Computed example of a mutant assay.
Amino acid sequence: MARNPERRTALLDAAIEVLAEEGARGLTFRAVDARAGVPTGTSSNYFAHRDQLLSQVADQIFVRLTPEEGSLETALRPEPTRELVVELMRWLARRMAAERTCYLGLFELRLEAARRPELRTQLTKVLRADLDENIRLHLASGMPGDADTVRLLYFALTGLLLDHFTVPGLHDERALDTLIETVVTRIVPEA
């Protein structure tokens, strides 16, 4: 297996783009090589098989979706209130929109995981770790609500963003902000 970490990252980023634009069926080594602008056969030097590529794509998506160092701490500085939760959820939605390709790739991986047990195991591990970290941060920062509050916010935002990215005419940016506020107001108790 090849060991150039920069090239591996470029191939994984190309795979995310292919997933987002062509779906899981379009994700081939040849398509990744073409998207990355590397010679045909390069991907197969880095990934033993397609399932390995899919699993590592899941990890790369979360690397790209991880906030910049210190940005989360800065966002959590104000008084922990329901209003702050609204702002944090809006911030999160904007971050996901900025990484739309990653988020669409993640939707494709979720669908593919329904058919591939190995990918399901890896994706479950990655998503579980992310959800657990969100719960930990919410509770540690003193935000109103409990672990179930975070789970409900997660499910609601996931659904809102699925619609927002896949059927964008369903609601506009302003409507998304309003829906986020409504969701938070109905789920998060007052402090």
Rank of each mutant, 00 (worst) to 15 (best):
R95I: 09
F29D: 08
R50H: 14
G23T: 03
T9A: 08
T121L: 05
V18K: 01
D146W: 10
R30A: 09
A2K: 11
G37V: 11
R25L: 14
F155E: 13
T66N: 05
R110A: 13
L157G: 01
L162T: 12
A58W: 01
T101L: 11
R8A: 08
E6L: 04
L119W: 03
A31C: 04
T101S: 08
T74Q: 15
L84S: 01
I61C: 13
P168Q: 11
R90F: 12
D163P: 04
G159R: 11
D33R: 00
L119Q: 06
A97I: 13
A24M: 08
T178P: 15
A98S: 09
T81D: 02
E22C: 00
E6P: 00
R3E: 10
Q52P: 10
Y46F: 07
Q52R: 11
V85S: 10
T28F: 00
L84P: 02
V188W: 04
L84Q: 02
L54K: 01
T81L: 07
L53S: 11
I135V: 09
L19S: 01
E190K: 12
S43D: 06
V167C: 10
A156L: 12
P78H: 04
T149Q: 15
E79T: 12
F107A: 11
L72W: 07
T28E: 01
